[in-house]
């Protein structure tokens, strides 16, 4: 209690809260204390350790071609995978909310599976399925396509991880779409395609972007499922989180934290840009 009271910033003169309810100091104080202990303090340790490398250290790490490539792979494949997940997510969400078909509820519930399934288990299962002698990998291999132990494998794992976010963000909005608008468009002679792309799609864009951002953030940091299926070749299919683990195995803590910090900052920037686009499209579209 005393901790909470001490942390409650209500004392600061410039700080004003509005609202008549009690418990603000306690609630905020507790939340801030807990946030500080669990999230901020450890992250501060991360930045502190990384800062011991100095600017030169950061520059050296960033100019290492292997690091560059791992970051490129991580960001590139995450981007492609989250876009793919978002597009597929739109279609799936559309099918799940707009149509009724047998097994709809089951499929709807299944969408959240990657969220609750441990990533290592997912990685093992995906690798087993898509390996050249796996259930799905074998037919693909006969076509001459090898989909694991290369960036495609990373892509598969990341789509898996990102899918629930892509579906769940747009689903409520599709449910809310105004049917009358569609009817009006149809009455005015618009074709179905025109209606879909000009009337229905625009309000979904902000939510779809949110889903994209979430899937991207999740895919970017993913480790457990990717290493089982990626092949992990330096410069080909080595992801940045793996490079962090490798640096740790070399007892190079500073190097590991530098990559971690770079990833963190870049992820933030990408997410920030997506959120800005989203805010902008929200303003343009009206309050979607």
């Amino acid at each position: 209690m005393s901790v909470a009271a001490a942390a409650a910033p209500a004392r600061r003169p410039f700080f004003r809260k509005t609202g008549a309810l009690p418990g603000f100091g306690l609630a905020l104080g507790y939340a801030l204390t807990w946030l500080g202990l669990i999230v901020l303090l450890p992250l501060a340790a991360l930045f502190l350790r990384a800062s011991s490398a100095g600017l030169a250290g950061f520059a050296a790490t960033l100019s290492d071609p292997r690091v560059q490539h791992a970051l490129l792979i991580s960001f590139g494949v995450s981007a492609v995978a989250s876009i793919a997940a978002s597009l597929a997510g739109l279609v799936i969400a559309w099918a799940l909310t707009r149509y009724d078909f047998p097994g709809r509820r089951v499929i709807d519930a299944m969408v959240d599976l990657p969220f609750a399934l441990p990533t290592a288990v997912a990685g093992i299962a995906l690798a087993a399925l898509y390996a050249p002698d796996g259930l799905l990998g074998a037919p693909l291999a006969r076509l001459g396509w090898q989909v694991v132990y290369n960036p495609i494998g990373i892509f598969i794992a990341m789509v898996f991880i990102g899918l629930p976010y892509a579906v769940r963000t747009v689903q409520p909005l599709i449910a809310e779409l105004d049917r009358e608008l569609e009817e009006a468009a149809a009455t005015l002679g618009a074709s179905r395609l025109q209606t879909v792309f000009q009337i229905l799609a625009p309000p979904l864009i902000p939510a779809a972007l949110t889903g994209l951002a979430l899937a991207f953030a999740r895919a970017l940091g993913e480790y457990g499922s990717v290493i089982f299926i990626a092949g992990n070749l330096p410069g080909v299919s080595e992801i940045a989180p793996l490079l962090i683990v490798i640096k740790l195995s070399e007892f190079d803590y500073t190097g590991a934290t530098v990559i971690a910090v770079i990833m963190l900052i870049m992820a933030f920037l990408v997410l920030l840009i997506i959120n800005l686009i989203q805010a902008w499209s929200r303003r343009r579209m009206g309050n979607a």
Binding site: R168, T169, P172, P206, T210, L214, N275, L276, A279, R282
Partner: peptide, 20 residues
């Protein structure tokens, strides 16, 4: 929470808060 919120927006999305 609306507008330029960095992460706030996506809070609305993930689960099903809107219908809730």
């Amino acid at each position: 929470i609306r507008g330029g919120d960095f992460f706030g927006l996506k809070l609305r999305g993930l689960a099903l808060p809107a219908p809730m």
